[in-house]
Amino acid sequence: MNIFRFAGDMTHLISILVLLLKVYATKSCSGISLKTQELYGIVFLARYLDLFTDFISVYNTVMKLVFIGSSLAIVWCMRFHRVVKRSYDRDVDTFRHYFLVGGCFLLALFVHEKFSFREVFWAFSIYLEAVAILPQLILLQRSGNVDNLTGQYVLFLGAYRGFYILNWIYRYFTEDQFSRWISCVSGLVQTALYADFFYYYFISWKNNAKLKLPA
């Protein structure tokens, strides 16, 4: 564990707490893409298949349970919670995310560290996480103004993988046999997808204006 990875995990945890706060405090999921939440649920379920077989540390296991639990809880809320589901606007959340699932799985079948059930699903989860934010970013562009909590949720979610890139650089230089090129390349793509969001978020913060993404 190094400070970059810990900062990344904490930033990721904060993004989840901000999202839970928004949904439970406002009893509304307006501006949140159900499809992105479903993709993240698939990402965590596919990535943490080793949850009960490989014990790394208490921290590792607890965080995996938090990530799986929170993503499934949000999906459940947006689909079935009496009040919350009313604020979900499926007419705006129209990204065909099943193509992302199919494409990433196909890619994982060809590009992986080792051709085994666990490794293919792990690579699939890494590729899928890189593009999972697309439905959410498209929805924000469509819905124009972005409420503060949703903006902060996306900001922290984008920043966490940026910290992971610093972690991979650090580990590359401090550990001899470290090679996570699948995670690194995907992490770079993932963080790059947030670039324009970061830019507009910074502009809105500088001008102390409401965050607006150009359509």
């Binding site: 995996k64 560290e113 490794e119």
Partner: peptide, 10 residues
């Protein structure tokens, strides 16, 4: 072929 290192990252 040595097994890839355990996935210690989240």
């Amino acid at each position: 072929h040595q097994a890839p290192p355990a996935k210690d990252e989240l």
